[in-house]
Design a protein around this nucleic acid. Structure first.
Length: 604
RNA sequence: GGGGCUGUAGCUCAAUUGGUCAGAGCGCCGGCCUGUCACGCCGGAGGUUGCGGGUUCGAGCCCCGUCAGCCUCGCCA
């Protein structure tokens, strides 16, 4: 009689010494087998873990005979007795105190030899793993990632459910949304020549839900963007999408940080102190050189513009004369860097656009602190040196690295140096979870090349109340550019360990302000209507003040799981060329399919 | 679209300056083995060196092209 595999009593990670004496039914895959000639040991694996099963020819000859023919990844079901291993416990296994003495076994399914070993620590090329993802997910790290992802999404859903948010689905076949990425298009069979777009985000729909009076919305939403990929970018990805009515930024931030604290607790068992620190965009750029600061370590950027005033160093002098700044970071103990190392850094920073890398080493010379090498001959004077030391906080043994020029460039270079040096010199503490909010973003940016004002976030972002006057709503004249660049937005980004988890804003709910916004962006009323017609219309029927946020779920799981690629936390990811190695999508379709859609194959 | 790295057995890799270099470990197959848990021991099979072309007496190695994978800039919140 076949064993009733549908009546499993435990999973393969469940049994402990307290279960000794029980008769159990386990099913799973052969992880490993050791045939000692007489005794056969099988490590049986399922989602729960691994249990050793023993086959003894003297007591169960028939089961033993079947067991001898087992191979890796065969699927079996066994019935037997839980016995204690005595002095043979395996401390490496949670179930290592016991084993199952099998009395009966059924072979349910054979397996070809897998193309790679199903082991935790294999170093196989990722392509092969993705082609055989159904085997890859049998490995503990992959399974652990997917289980963590489930735990996190479940925590998020529970949080929002508890706080009155409605989980509402929005269309996948839709119209292009305002984000700037390329759309994935889906041709219409019923209207040849027309296309749906897959949503880059549910942005407009969630705003409509607020205007519709649903008050609180959330969705774990799939989003699509047809751009080139990176380790942290996939063509389809998942956002935790949230929107609330009658709120200011603080309301949204408080919910999100409370939710993320629960996620951190559930994912890594860490208690995140609330409220999270808030840093203005301007401060983040000035102190950390990035709009997504990594607060796990210090090494902040210091301003030395005043301290180096009067230095006979043209790079500094020209920068200040042009209205720029001189700033630096201090690398503690960096004076031990060799000339080769600092030259290498110089080359690298030139690669991101810097003209060079001015630096000095700080040394102690007979009780006196002095600057050496680099640009020491320009700034190692009794007037400048003390001021630089004071402003930078540098001490003997340190290395001071400078950048001079426009604020934006100086931030870029020093921000790069800060993160690069911290990474390479191991200054980043492990197992820390440094969240922060970056707030007070500029509403507009200016694209030097296109000579155009563009929205930093998206065109529905509300200005801060105290900056609204700068937009001169109602005035036929457009405000000057420098005024516009001063306008701060009701926008906020959530950052974890220097990586942006997501961002959001309070939206414009006044149709006159929204119209002004489009005007400033150079979008004609017709363009705006063509693109966002339904939202423009809706805004005229009593739109409540509303706002929300979108968080990258994949990135969140990646960070909490300690992974370095989004592919590690997605069940069936695409590769760097947006191909699914498992299904081989995208693929060619038949002529008939094209004909139905009114499409012709393009010839290059 | 640009740049970089990689491609040798099922997997991970090695092969000095171009010269018996087609190799190792794991896996796989067969045999032996009653306390293994990375079991052990003995034996065996397995290769279009990504693909195409070129240089050369001779190419895994050099050159050109091409394909694929990864990283990255552009692009993209």
């Amino acid at each position: 009689m076949p064993l009733p595999y549908h009546e499993r009593t435990h999973d393969c990670g469940a049994l402990r010494a307290s279960d000794v004496g029980k008769t159990v039914l386990l099913a799973g895959w052969v992880d490993n087998f050791r045939d000692l000639g007489g005794m056969v040991f099988v490590d049986l694996r399922d989602r729960g873990g691994i249990t050793q099963v023993r086959f003894d020819p003297t007591t169960d000859p028939r089961a033993h005979e079947v067991a001898r023919a087992l191979r890796s990844e065969y699927v079996i079901v066994v019935r037997g007795e839980v016995v204690h291993r005595g002095d043979k416990v395996n401390p490496n296994l949670p179930t290592g105190e016991i084993e199952v003495k099998a009395h009966e076994i059924d072979l349910l399914s054979k397996s070809k030899t897998p193309p790679f070993m199903i082991a935790d620590d294999i170093e196989t090329n990722e392509d092969l793993r993705l082609e055989n993802r159904f085997l890859d997910v049998r490995r503990t790290p992959v399974r652990r990632a997917l289980m963590l992802r489930h735990r996190i999404t479940k925590t998020i859903r529970d949080y929002f459910d508890r706080h009155g948010f409605l989980d509402i689905e929005t269309p996948i076949l839709t119209k292009s949304t305002p984000e700037g990425a390329r759309d994935y298009l889906v041709p219409s069979r019923l209207q040849h020549g027309s296309f749906y777009a897959l949503p880059q985000s549910p942005q407009l729909f969630k705003q409509l839900l607020m205007i519709g009076g649903l008050d609180r919305y959330m969705q774990i939403a799939r989003c699509f963007r047809d751009e080139d990929l990176r380790a942290d970018r996939q063509p389809e990805f998942t956002q935790v999408d949230v929107e609330m009515a009658f709120v200011q930024p603080e309301n949204v931030m408080q919910h999100i940080e409370a939710c993320m604290a629960e996620v951190a607790e559930a994912a890594v068992g860490v208690e995140v102190p609330l409220p999270l620190p808030r840093i203005s965009y301007a401060d983040a750029m000035r102190k950390y050189g990035r709009d997504a600061p990594d607060l796990r370590y210090d090494m902040t950027i210091k301003d030395v513009t005043a301290a180096v005033a009067g230095a006979e160093f043209n790079v500094f002098r020209d920068a200040v004369a042009a209205g720029g700044v001189v700033r630096c970071i201090v690398l503690t103990g960096g004076a031990s860097m060799t000339r080769k190392e600092t030259d290498g850094l110089t080359e690298e920073i030139k690669g991101i656009g810097a003209g060079g890398l001015p630096l000095v080493k700080v040394a102690d010379e007979g009780g006196k602190t002095v600057f050496q090498t680099g640009i020491a001959k320009f700034i190692d004077t009794d007037t400048i040196r003390p001021k630089v030391l004071e402003a930078s906080g540098a001490r003997p043994g340190d290395l001071i690295l400078f950048a001079a020029g426009t604020e934006a460039n100086v931030s870029k270079y020093l921000g790069w140096l800060r993160t690069t040096l911290a990474e390479r010199r191991g200054l980043i503490p492990k197992d820390q979870w440094a969240f922060c909010w970056v707030v007070d973003f500029p509403l507009f940016g200016y694209d030097e090349e296109a000579r155009a004002i563009y929205p930093m976030h998206h065109p529905f972002t509300s200005p801060k109340d105290e900056d609204l006057h700068l937009m001169r709503v109602g005035d036929p004249e457009l405000p000057p550019r420098e005024d516009l660049l001063k306008v701060r937005a009701k926008a906020y980004d959530l950052v974890l360990n220097g990586i942006e988890l997501g961002g959001g804003s309070i939206r414009i709910h006044r149709s006159d302000v929204q119209a002004r916004m489009f005007q400033i962006l150079g979008l004609s009323e017709e363009d705006a209507r063509a693109k966002f017609q339904f939202l423009m219309e809706a805004l005229q029927y009593g739109a409540p003040p509303h706002g929300g946020i979108a968080l990258g779920l994949d990135r969140t799981v990646m960070l909490f799981g300690g992974f370095s690629s989004l592919r590690d936390v997605i069940a069936f990811p695409k590769n760097a060329r947006a191909v699914c190695p498992l299904t081989d999508a995208p693929s060619v379709v038949t002529r008939e399919q094209l004909k139905d859609l009114g499409l012709d194959r393009l010839h290059e």
